[in-house]
């Protein structure tokens, strides 16, 4: 079993609670394939020592990840990754990514600034996903495991 020690980067000034930062960063690592099933997450003590984050906060984040079926606690050993979020269609060599790159370059040719692009993407994402946060979780859970 490969044990990868990872380090969370907790930004105290971001306004995002540390609990959410840990959840988001773990998910991001799962999406990018940095964390794979069987990896052990840092213990609450490790996170506390390196990032000065309340151990209860870390444990709460892990419980949230566990609730989503992404990690599992093994008594006496720590918290381990159960499944990955990396999907072939979400990697940078997928056709979807190529289409997005092409669209972004067209947007740039049309004179859009970076902020305009971000706003457009966010708006489109909101239209598609807003009502479905809960659904998305349920879906991933049913496909997982």
């Amino acid at each position: 079993m490969v044990v990868v020690i990872v380090e969370f980067r907790i930004n105290r000034r971001s306004g995002v609670p540390a609990f959410q930062q840990i959840v988001q960063q773990t998910k991001q690592a799962l999406r990018l394939g940095v964390l794979v099933p069987g990896d052990r997450l840092p213990t609450a003590k490790d996170v506390a020592e390196v990032s000065a984050v309340n151990p209860n906060t870390t444990l709460k984040a892990y419980r949230e990840l566990e609730r989503e079926g992404l990690v599992e606690p093994r008594p006496g050993q720590g918290t381990f990754v159960r499944r990955t979020l990396a999907r072939p269609s979400a990697s940078t060599d997928s056709p979807l990514y190529g289409q997005l790159v092409a669209w972004v370059s067209r947007a740039a040719e049309a004179g859009l600034e970076q902020e305009d692009v971000v706003a457009l993407v966010a708006s489109a994402m909101e239209k598609q996903y807003t009502a479905g946060t809960e659904t998305a979780v349920t879906t991933t859970r049913s496909t997982g495991g």
Partner: peptide
């Protein structure tokens, strides 16, 4: 603070 919280965690 890290040392303190690690003690609390342990």
């Amino acid at each position: 603070m890290g040392a303190l919280l690690a003690e609390a965690a342990e």
